[in-house]
Write a protein that binds this DNA or RNA. Structure first.
Lengths: 93, 93
DNA sequence: TTAATATATTCTAATATTCATATATAATCA
DNA sequence: TGATTATATATGAATATTAGAATATATTAA
């Protein structure tokens, strides 16, 4: 196996290593949502949601598209993310 | 599904969200190693390795046992960790 | 064009992380 | 016992993260 890019790999974990971002990601496993929808479902300020989405996007976890004056965010690799979350959720303490 | 503990889950990701800790974890997927062995394989100072191992232990990722005056660290859930790492490693950019 | 809506960005203060240095502890050996 | 080996912990400086407040931008509606 070739050398792993630990910086990049750890960056992925780091992006998920914040409770608010994890909640956002979990919301998006249900499907694409715009910022306002995420904001109201997790009850975090619009600015903060936007900041976290920017971080998730920078790490390649989400992407977005415009729709009117809204921006719809979605997971880039839904299956991968779902599998990982499932593994962690099933992990006993 | 019951409410998820996002603090705890994100703590798990956060623990893996550092390149040095990820390298340590990767080393331990090969089997139990004592601090000195980890130190020489990843070339990080003893104190720093110890600090990172303490963090990994606090998040339930590793545990350790004494053997003489050495301490052997091992993954608590080897299969789970291996599965997760494999998923991430196979993920395209 | 102006107003309203949706989202992003900038700035700041509080807090957390990281690594290095120095020191402490604990087990083994002579 | 004292010396050595292996590991852990305390401290501090540099840096990063976080959330909130204020403001900016972009799209749509009037």
């Amino acid at each position: 196996m070739a050398d792993l890019d630990y910086e990049k790999m750890s960056g992925f974990f780091k992006a998920l290593g914040n409770p608010t971002r994890l909640r956002i990601v979990k919301e998006l496993t249900e499907g694409e949502k715009c910022v306002g929808e995420v904001e109201s479902s997790i009850r975090v300020s619009q600015a903060n949601v936007s900041q976290h989405l920017t971080i998730l996007k920078a790490h390649g976890i989400v992407d977005c598209r415009k729709e009117g004056n809204a921006r719809c965010y979605y997971l880039r690799q839904t299956d991968l993310i779902k599998k990982i979350l499932k593994l962690i959720e099933s992990k006993e303490a």
